[in-house]
């Protein structure tokens, strides 16, 4: 099978890559571009561990084809911190122990950031429903919800 050239912007950097027509964006990120922050937990869009932003929209990168990202703007967990300054969500997740094994954390952070951009002052229920597509098996979600709310409050104040 021949590869297809694709030009995108990833975390603000113009990025070109070659991929097969049936290759997922997740595989492109992980295997071709070395961006392994997005994780494959299921490959069927059920777990959210591969969540990234595509043109401002939260997607499971395992359900997007690499070739579909031609001309798109992609944001991944690797672009969330600015230099050595963590995004408030990243910092609060650490401060409030909102992760245990950490495998779901990149996807949850990307998803939570997307939520707060749309809705800076969500209720707990809204956070829980927004994150319902991101499975976490370690924490029981309690500290995740609280950390999102702490970060949201901080970001509103800033």
């Amino acid at each position: 099978m021949k590869t297809i050239p694709v030009a995108t912007t990833i975390n603000g950097d113009e990025t070109e890559f070659l991929c097969h027509a049936d290759e997922s964006l997740l595989d492109v990120l992980r295997d071709r571009l070395g961006l392994t922050g997005a994780k494959e937990g299921c490959g069927t869009g059920d777990c959210g561990a591969c969540s990234v932003m595509m043109n401002g929209r939260l997607v499971c990168s395992c359900l997007v084809l690499g070739v579909e990202t031609e001309g798109a703007e992609i944001e991944t967990i690797e672009g969330m911190a600015k230099g050595d300054t963590l995004h408030p969500l990243q910092r609060v997740f650490l401060e409030e122990a909102a992760l245990q094994c950490g495998i779901c954390t990149p996807g949850i952070l990307v998803a939570a950031k997307a939520l707060l951009e749309k809705n800076p002052d969500p209720t707990d229920t809204e956070v829980r429903y927004w994150l319902a597509g991101n499975l976490c098996r370690c924490t029981g979600y309690d500290k995740i919800i609280k950390a999102v709310q702490t970060a949201a409050a901080e970001m509103r104040g800033a």
Partner: peptide, 19 residues
């Protein structure tokens, strides 16, 4: 206290089995 492996895990740098 903050865990020592934390920054790597919130920035996507931590290397898991498939990484």
């Amino acid at each position: 206290v903050t865990r020592p492996d934390g920054v790597d895990k919130v920035t996507g740098k931590a290397a898991y089995g498939a990484d």
